[in-house]
Design a protein around this nucleic acid. Sequence first.
DNA 1: GGTTGCAATGCACGATTATACACGATATTT
DNA 2: AAATATCGTGTATAATCGTGCATTGCAACC
Lengths: 260, 260
Amino acid sequence: MSKVPPKDRRETIGVRLSEGCSLSATALAEEFDVSPDAIRRDLRALAAEGRCRRVYGGALPLSPASTPMRVRGQEAAGRKAALAAAAAAAARIRPGEFLFLDNGSTNLALARALPAIELTVATNSIAIAAALAERDDLQLHVLGGVVRPAIGGCVDADAVAAVQRMNIDLCFLGACAVSLDEGVSAFDPEDAAFKRAALRCSRRAMLLATAEKLATRAPYRVAPLDAIDALVVEHESAGHAEVNAMRTAGIDVVMADLPL
Amino acid sequence: MSKVPPKDRRETIGVRLSEGCSLSATALAEEFDVSPDAIRRDLRALAAEGRCRRVYGGALPLSPASTPMRVRGQEAAGRKAALAAAAAAAARIRPGEFLFLDNGSTNLALARALPAIELTVATNSIAIAAALAERDDLQLHVLGGVVRPAIGGCVDADAVAAVQRMNIDLCFLGACAVSLDEGVSAFDPEDAAFKRAALRCSRRAMLLATAEKLATRAPYRVAPLDAIDALVVEHESAGHAEVNAMRTAGIDVVMADLPL
DNA sequence: GGTTGCAATGCACGATTATACACGATATTT
DNA sequence: AAATATCGTGTATAATCGTGCATTGCAACC
């Protein structure tokens, strides 16, 4: 076997990850005939680029296509529940308000944590709609359209048109990535466009971000950070440099309690 | 046999659980080639996250929470599954067709029984949308609007407008009541109006009726029985006088097999 | 030609994480 | 009730991780 250029090897690994394969560091080391150190360096670099998730023993793909909603939602159920509870408390939701819940597993947790008061809740997420359909204390409005499996809801023109007819009091944006410099960004252009439309129709907007979404970026910009009234982050993000920078930049950052 | 990262193994187990499989600890240990201890640790961790129930010998999936409308759905799950299977077979669904599934627990069973071919499926039911959202072999279109909890989906003006923009090949109507003289009828006026709109936009229409819906009536008429191309009834309705009368009246009545 | 800068590699170290085995306790089966 | 299988905990072991450092190969530059 002839030696493979390092850059080439790294790209090969990246492609496999984006295909949804989970990789073992030792296996890769053997395959490319390099030391595990080199592989670990590659995986760390790919993880820094947001192309995979680093785990003990190798790396896991985090590509939205390969991990449909059902898996992502359960990945960190406890953490997201804590985050959702903090957000629900911080939002100071009042009776009669009109809420919008964007797609996302974190917002699904939030839906379950919504207080039992009279509310109108709109969503473009099938899972969130299903979770709220059984509650009779609130009025539920779903946005129609073609459902994107990778996203778990509708983000097409129909959905944009529907959201533009709404006067939303409080919008909970789903975010794929959040950073101070790049703002909020998403992996899908239509998704990003939908989020922008939802933001425009909302009086206030909040965003729940799990730790792995902080200080990362996705291809399509949604909005700068100051378009968000409050950012809710996990307790474990406390010392995060990005969080401190956001705070000094004047962003309202809410810290969730430790999960049970 | 390449070794998989521990986190990946745990996630794989978690996915299986969320798919409703019950798992044996020893079998998993053999499959992943680790000691039962490691598997038990995984299962304990998953149980701690609330993703499964720990039992002697393995683990059981915790939530068929993916089946809202569960109260009604489980009532006669086996019977409805048989009915749905018969309907799916009788419908002769061909690739590329555009199906519409109306609200109703019977149609939810049908959604689960849809063949794995390329289809476009539209629905106004949240539960059906949730059941189909995970399938990537078909395109899913949900109708937006305000969700009526009693119905489990949208039947308002938005939904009617949306369905009127569709060219439906085959419509599976949900019915509250079916009789030869009164035709198809529903308990809710808006629901009935929506069903009429859906019927108007459909080339063919079928209706699945459990035994208790036969020969009954509801306040609001949807359509006469001859607007339906085929009526699928349960096996136990075989000797039903109403069924015989329908047959002699020229209605195409399909009989389901006995449930397992 | 020699040197410099850069990138990549392999190795050594302490730290972290997962594993397997041992033990008594508990549940299931016969 | 006895026998067997599984469980939970503790502990020692092994694998992997991250970091720092020296070495190598290569291209650019003087």
